[in-house]
Design a protein around this nucleic acid. Structure first.
Length: 201
DNA sequence: CGTTCGATGCACT
DNA sequence: GTGCATCGAACGT
């Protein structure tokens, strides 16, 4: 079942917690790829210094201010596309960053996309549990790009689904990879899962 | 284990 | 011009 817009129109921390164990699916002309969400981070409002809305509204972060249930995709470090799910109500800039998946469907397609990265030329193949480990890696494996920015997650080809998978315990700790706002325990992981990036509580 | 650093594009000052 | 919500390799402990 595809998660409806209502799922996202709630407090961001609740959405983050509930996204653990759901399935991110991307259908493209090359095929379908999907993975179980095992790591997310919440970015909440203009008062959160790590949120892109911290300095107010701009052309780039406008999707954060828009309706919930849309994708907010942006390019980071000139190399990596990051995918967020926009949460809360219009005018309340907040989102959940998808940071890691456990690969489910389309493994050969993911392997092909990962190995196509310029910096992986001539390198050994990525191990299956690592295909979607990290926010830049998962967008590459699923073929998610800036073209998906603002897309509704309630209609294909990019959706998040509830497949009734019984996930384990959710662990909370501080967000990683940021220089400000590190005090908030707004990173949720599927406890101990090996596809989680970085620290693994 | 840990820290450092280059690649790379663009929004923002 | 500066600084990233990164990745992966190189090097130090």
């Amino acid at each position: 079942m595809i998660l409806p817009v209502d799922f996202y129109a709630r407090a961001t921390l609740d959405v983050a917690r509930d996204l653990i164990g759901k399935v991110l699916v991307h259908r493209t002309a090359q095929g379908t790829a999907s993975g179980l969400i095992v790591e997310v981070e919440a970015y909440i409002g203009e008062d959160d210094p790590a949120c892109h809305a911290a300095a107010g509204r701009t052309d780039r972060n406008a999707p954060l201010y828009g309706p919930p249930g849309r994708a907010y995709v942006y390019l980071n470090y000139g190399l990596h596309d990051m995918m967020n799910a926009v949460t809360e109500d219009e005018g309340h800039p907040s989102a959940v960053l998808i940071r890691a998946l456990a690969p489910l469907e389309g493994l050969p397609l993911m392997r092909r996309r990962r190995s196509r990265a310029p910096w992986r030329k001539g390198k050994p193949a990525v191990a299956d549990p690592d295909l979607c480990k990290g926010p830049g890696n998962l967008t590459r494996a699923l073929g998610i790009t800036l073209a998906d920015n603002r897309r509704s997650l309630a209609r294909g080809p990019l959706t998040i689904q509830d497949r009734g998978i019984a996930a384990g315990a959710v662990a909370w700790d501080t967000r990683i990879g940021i220089r400000v706002g590190t005090e908030h325990p707004w990173r949720a992981t599927l406890a101990g899962h090996r596809s989680v990036s970085g620290r693994r509580p």
